[in-house]
Nucleic acid binder design. Structure first.
Lengths: 121, 121
DNA sequence: ATCGTGTTCAACCGATCGGTTGAACACGAG
DNA sequence: CTCGTGTTCAACCGATCGGTTGAACACGAT
């Protein structure tokens, strides 16, 4: 049930409604009712979505009388960004290395290429 | 069936096995068999995972005799990065604005609501 | 033509997902 | 206290997911 954090964040954002909620929470905190307004679904459904976002650490809930204002947490984004950037850069680097290799094949002078790659489980 | 691209990418990466495949594909193209080796699951399961990644545009398949080498596409990462960065920055900006707001504190008028929303399928 | 390897298709299974409805809880207002 | 609003819990439903197995297809080698 408790999936790894990265999976939870990705899964949470895999839903358009949830992504839109995050987008709107950027403008400021909101209550369940306020968040639910635009999406003709039940409040319970929105509450469930929030639980997913909360589980992923993307939002936190406050307390204001009987209201539970929802607050966006920017921190968790970094987790994703780190993962993405790491592999995107590597992939791009490899891609560019390809040009170098091709150029080298053309020149056919000498070989001083060190291709390293990191593998982490 | 055809969800929006962003949802597909996020969903594809929400699975640890699929994320690991992407990580390993950074080192270079691979066949289904090679990819499957570390994960004691059936080749068919890996093939399914690949189909999800392909559907999300994260990988493409080549052709080499009876083999179908898998190639990582770095481009799609940008789609995510853009989305993430946009809202992360906004959220952080808002967070820092909080100090200013607290200092000012009595004239909180709202004015701008920048939230794009599209499909509410 | 036959065999073997690599890959995919198809049907099925249990678990989870996004949604519903109905009842309950929390708490301020009258 | 009672009422009303905001929110959550619980049970249920159809669809999708990640996995399986078994059969089929694609193509090189013999």
């Amino acid at each position: 049930m408790t999936a790894d954090p990265l999976s939870q964040v990705f899964a949470a954002l895999a839903d358009p409604t949830r992504r839109d909620m995050v987008a709107r929470l950027c403008a400021g905190d909101a209550t369940v009712g306020e968040l639910a307004a635009p999406y003709d679904v039940s409040l319970q459904a929105v509450s469930k979505h929030l639980k997913v976002l909360e589980g992923a650490g993307l939002v936190t809930r406050g307390r204001d009388a009987q209201r539970r204002p929802v607050h966006l947490e920017a921190e968790v984004f970094d987790l994703m960004t780190k993962w993405i950037e790491r592999y995107r850069r590597e992939a791009e680097a490899r891609y560019q290395r390809l040009d170098a290799v091709l150029a080298e094949l053309n020149d056919e002078t000498d070989g001083n290429d060190r291709s390293e790659q990191g593998e982490t489980a």
